[in-house]
Structures are given as structure tokens and as C-alpha cells.
Design a protein around this nucleic acid. Sequence first.
RNA 1: GGGCGCUUAGCUCAGUUGGUUAGAGCGUCUGGUUUACACCCAGAAGGUCCGCGGUUCGAGCCCGCGAGCGCCCACCA
Length: 847
Amino acid sequence: MELDKVYEPRRFEPRWAQWWVESGIYTAKWVPGKPVFSLVIPPPNVTGSLHMGHMLEHTAIDVTIRWHRMRGDVTLWLPGTDHAGIATEMIVARQLAAKGIQYRRDLTREEFEAKVWEWKAESGGTIKRQMIQIGASCDWSRERFTMDPVLSRAVREVFVSLHERGLLYRGEYMVNWCPSCNTAISDLETVHEETAGHLWHIRYGDVVVATTRPETMLGDTAVAVNPNDDRYDGLTFVPLPLSDRKIPVVRDEIANVEFGTGVVKITPAHDPNDFEVGKRHNLPLIQVIGQDGKITAAGGKYVGLDRYEARKQIVEDLQALGLIEKIDDHTLSIGKCQRCRTVVEPLVSKQWFVRTKPLAAKAIAAVDEKRIDIKPENWIKTWNEWMLNIRDWCVSRQLWWGHRIPAWYCDACNEVVIAREDPAECPKCKGALRQDSDVLDTWFSSGLWPFSTLGWPEQTDDLKHFYPTSLLITGFDIIFFWVARMSMLGIEFMGEVPFHKVYIHGLVRDADKQKMSKTKGNVIDPLVVNDQYGTDAVRMALVSGAAPGTDIVFTPDRLESARNFANKIWNAARFLLMKAGQEAPAQTAQAITLEDRWIQSRINECAREMNLAIDQFRYHEAAQTIRHFIWDDFCDWYIELKKISNDWGNIIPVFETALRLLHPVMPFLTEELWHRLGAAETDSISLQPYPQFDPALADTGAEREIKLLRDIVTAARNLRAELGIDPKLPLTGTISRDVDAALIERLCGVAFAKGEVPKSGAVRSTPDFDLWIDVPAGQMELQRKRLEKEKDQLIKNIASSKRQLGDEIFLSKAPAKILDSMRAKLADYETQLANVDQALTGQSPGQ
RNA sequence: GGGCGCUUAGCUCAGUUGGUUAGAGCGUCUGGUUUACACCCAGAAGGUCCGCGGUUCGAGCCCGCGAGCGCCCACCA
């Protein structure tokens, strides 16, 4: 059966994608004594669809996974998705809104939850379908979702257990509140942006305060001056404008003598610093901005105004009263909600917090002791920095979609019950209980992912076999959100790190090096390019740019280059099948020729480099190595040599080995061709052994001989091109060494005779050989130019070598190996110069 | 205010512990309808490795200073 002339991935990729899943060959089966390689996916949002970042991540993971599987490890890639609390809630809310339903008003909590599950059933499978399309060799039998009953049980167990261990508490603290998402968010979910603003200087009786948020003055309960600032000695109270209150002047370090007037207004209810000051001085808390971002009843006449409306109004009113002394431009960094970009409002509210300090200490130690080996290593510093300055983690969210907090409150006696099983009544007074209406931060459940997905808290076989996982491959954007939390919780609850290694990959950028984002409109849809170029080509393009610690600039020329490579392999296969037929590999033992020994040595070296590269996450190097082997060594030389000898007996096994080497990167093409070579239908190349380095196959003799042959042929072709001689015109020449002249003639069209090379005319002189080509008269001008240029270079090289070899200090300090090679080099240069000189003088001007 | 990273061919980037002549892909130029492949073949040109200083026999690589760019973290009104 002949192959199509052009590589058409669409004709076979979907078929293999489907078969890989249906055959169940990637279901991990534990076998005693066999090495285990396990990895859990960074769970994509269930709302999501595949973007280029996923494609890169999943390709990197898949390359590693397929490689381990072929090496014979019991290999598990556990897939799944995250319920993505806020994101999903917003999506479903938006859909309901389109139908005129406001969920919090029109639906009960249970009704809304049912709607989300409904939505998940319809649209939650997109990512999975897409992952299957790109060839991700996951174990779908173990697919998990963070809201699965087993995982939810793990969440509850951890929550209750953290509480029992004193690592969880509920309290009224200042949190970041998003008035638009209508929930508290963690510090990590707030992003700070430099924003142009103003600094208003407002007179409070005898003092002037400066503020960037005048509207908060409604809630001021003090002004502060530095204890060392004697300018305000004796001042105890100042009047608060726009109110009839007098507020105390407190002495506190927060006030900077140098800044402005040295007096700072204190709003304990709306600023984290002021909150602390308030606690130190027992100041009352007056909340003047509500959770909806509007002024509360405590704000007097401004009640109901949006905070920015109120700001305008207040400034106007103060100006009318002549109390604004000055307005300066001032850029400040404002915290915004990561999700919706709304400016967060610091608010005091009752939330659940995880005490992270003790957990972080263990995570730092784990990385320090390399029990978690982070690569590239420069991320360790970032890791430590964050862990050392970690603050308690606000884990409650005022949402409906997520793991409901397992805390119950008794309105009768104020008892708080935190329990693994839903309690029926108050254990103290038998009164009715009311469950906390909040849910947990999504990252709380993702933080348990490496063990909750394996069945914990049940002591399952999977947990025993696959935890700790071997490796985590993820992006730097979720190091703190996710990797840090998994590490802390894994160590705490499993007593062991969740993964032995972490590899942090780069970011996919567009041709202008910009981050891809929907708002910028520069996203490349992986499914579109997969369709255009083939999934294998996209994988190859990504992998070939994936050097550790660097971002990946994803450009069309990379894609084309990768697609061309696929086409090259396709055509090589087509040709081999025509020549060598479809006999199963190695049926008849053929005589091993020089080129056979050479290619085996080359592919052996290729295997050595690829194993090393993949093991060290140098994916780009693996890609380059196999490309170079297949294109340059195998196609350009091995096949060409075989055409000459017309001996096709040993070529298929080499090609088959190359397919196996390439398979982790380009799984579809290699699977397809491997079957075209005659493999059984029920078999898969992905289950064949990955080629390993075998010292017995290294053949330096054969490598040297073929290199000599290549150099001679290249030199001859080079001369021919430079002299502008018709490529088809047969030529004669002389060469200084014993060579296979017939073979060389077939390769470059020059019939060489062995002999003393005339040191004149069209000569090429190298350390290994000298050769001369008989040239028709009148075509020497180009050659003369080349020789002169070469002479200049040689003179420079000789001068430089001589200078170094004449340096006493160099001679005494440099190792003998370097000296020897430099002396040999100098001798070569000198011989070559003599040859070139002779060639130049041998040319009479008229020639 | 701290921390991290980048600067190498026209473009996008490699360069593992310092060691002879710094590489790849794409692009450019020259020449090719050799019966696998023009998504191809043969050949070529192209580099002050951001600047300055230092360590060293020897620096793209190590150290210091500087310039430009990017990212992360941070509660100074």
C-alpha cells in the first residue's frame, strides 16, 4: 500500500487520537517491582477550552510521559478539571442573566447549584475532547473533578483536621473585597496596578492631612502623628469635617514625619494599616462603605452613593467649605480584582483563615533539602521569598458554587460546630443549626489534588502506588496559588511531599513577544493551527522552542519548519516502503556495510542525547537532535548512500528506531508510519521500548570514515559551485588519500585519481586531505579570489596561534592538552598556507 | 522599595561545568525538473556575543559598574 505523496495529518490524527483512548492502553497498571512514574495534571478550569498555554504544558507533559512509558515505567498521567469557583459561577450567572434571571434573587442556592451542574454536563467536557485531540496520553479511567464526592470528602477532612490542629480560625479581619464579584478574595487574587490619582490635602481643624481616598474620611476615627514629632504636642482632638464628630490625635509609628504634614488620617474600617492602628489604640470601627461599594447609613447624607460618586461629592463639599488646602497629582498602586479588574475595597469581615506560617516552614525545608527539586533553580529564590513573607490565607468565599464550609452555627447558644458529618442539632443546646453559607476558595481543593485524586482519605492502592507523584509540570503564574499550597498541604496531611520534582515551563508569546491574551486579541487557537499544520507539527514547533527558563515565541515559520520536517519523514517512509517493501524489520540478516555501522553509531548517539535531554527538560535539544539525525544523517547521507549501493536490507530497522526516538514529540505521525511498516493493528509504538545508548554500537572508525567521505564530497561540490561549473559536467581530479573513488564520483561528479596533488589551480587543502580539480581554462578568477581570502584568514590564524605559543606564561599555565592541540593546529595552518600560496603562484595571470 | 530574567547572524532563539575556527531554524544570495520529498536538493554570504572595567595563560560563559527591555513581589497616607 503506497503512501500519499504529501503528508496529510488530518487523514490519520483523529483516528489515532480516538484509538489511544478507546484501547485503554494508557490506563496505569501497577506491577510490583517496576519503577513508577506518576504525574497529575494541573487541572484546567472546567469552564475552559484549550489555549496555547495548555497546548505547551500538555505537550511537555506528554513528551515526558510517553518517554517514561516507553522506558518501561508504570506510567500514570492523571487528568481532570477544576470547578473554578468564581469563574464558573460568573459564566452561569451571565447565561441566566441573558434569560432575565438574576440568580441570587430569583433562585435558591440549591436551584442555582443544579443549574451549574447542568451547565457542566453540557459544556464541561470541552477540554477533555481537546486534550484527546492533541494526543495527551492520559489515563482517562482516573479522570477527576474537584467537586467529585471523593474529592469533596477530602476537602472536608482537611478543613476539619486543620481546625483540630489549630491551623484554621475564623475571625473579623480586613480582607480584600470585590464589590463586583461580591466576595472576599485572597491577597493573591488581588493584582496591584499603578494608577494616576491625587493626593488631597484636607484641613482637620489645626492640622492638615493628606489622603488618596477622601471618601473614607466619613469613617475616620482618629488622626495619627509620629511619637517623635513634637510639632503637635498637646493636641488631643481635631474636628472631623463634614461631621459633628471630634476625633482623637493618636501617637503612632505609622505617621511619617517626612511625609506631607506628618499627620495621617486613620480609617480603621477601610485600610489595612489603619485597621492595625485602630487595634493598637482601641479605636472604633465605622464602616462607611458597604459590600456593594456604596456608602452606608453611617455615611450620613452621602448614603447610597457609589464610592467614587461620594468621593466627588465630598471633595466638592470640602472645597465649598474651603477645607481643601491643595490637590497634588499622585500615582499610586491600587489593588484590583484579578478576575474582573474592579478596585478591591478593604473591608472588615468575618472570614475563615488558614494559619500558613507553620505550613510554609515545612515547605521551605522540603525545597531546601531537595525533597522537592524545583527546576529551573532560579525559582527557588522566589519560592523562599514568598514563603517567608506568607500571610494567613483567607479561604472563605461568599459564593454559591464550591465546597460549602463545614461549619454550623447555633443561633440559640452561639455554638460553632465544625464536623466531618453534617450535625442534626446543636450538641450543646439541641437547638437548630445553620450551616455557614460560604464556600471555600477554589485553590483549597486544588491544593489537595495530588492526593485527593488518588482517593485520600481512603488508604487506596493508588495512593500507595502513585503518591508522592514523580513530577509536576506547570507554569510560574500558579507557583503560589497552587504549587505552594499543594506542597504545604501535602506535607501536612500525607507526611510527604506531593511531588519529587517541579518543572516550571515558560510562556507562549506571539510573534511580537507579547503575552497572548483575549483582550489583546493576539491569541492563536491551537485547534486552528493543529488543523492547518497537523498536531505533530504544532507539538514539534512548541517543543523546539522550549528551552528551560525561557518563553516561547510562537511564529508561523516555526510551524512551517516543523510541518516540513513531518513531510520529510513521511516521504522518507514512502520511499523506503517502495524500495524495501513492507517486510517486517530484520527478517533476513544482511551484510553490515560501512554506512550501516555509521548510521547505527549515529542513531545510538542520538538516543544518548535524547534520553539525557528529556530527562533534564531540555526539550528543545531533544527536538533539534532528532531533527538533525533524521534529516541530515538519515535522509541526506544514509539514504543517498543506499541509493548508490541499492542495498536496502538494513535500512528499515534504523528508520523504525528513529520513529521510536521521535514518538514522544510527534506521536501521531510515528504511530501511523510504524503501522505502515507492518506492525500489528492492536499494537502501539507508544508501548515499544525507547532506544537507549549502547556502548557496543558506538563506532568511531565508521564515523571517521564517513566524515572523511562527506568532507571530500562537500569540498568538491564547494569548488564546483565556486568555479561556476555546470553541476552536471563530469570532472576529473586528484586526491592525496586512498578513497572509494567510484562512490565519491557518484556523489559529486568528480572522478578522483589518487596522487600527488598539484599545488596549483583549483585546490582545496584541509588537515585531512588535499584535493585538486581539473578546471577548464578561463574559470580560475573566482578560485583566485577564494584563495586570497583563505590566505588572509590563514595568516591571521597563524599569527594568533604563534602569539599564544610564544607566550611564556601561557606555556607554563595552560594544560598540555590545549598546548598540543594548538601546536597541531598551527602546523595545519602552515601546511595549508603553503598549499594556498603555491596554488596562487602556480596560476599564471593568463590562466 | 525589594527580587528575578533578558540583551549572541537580517528575524526568532540555542550555547550543559571558562579551552582550538560561536551554532540552529527562518530569511537572503547562487545554482539545480538526479525516478522519496520544491513542504525538495547542492553551495554561499552574514556575528565588536549591549557598553566599560576586572579575574584568568585563556571570557559569549565568572565578578563589578552602567545602559536598554521585560516580569514578579510589596499595606507608606
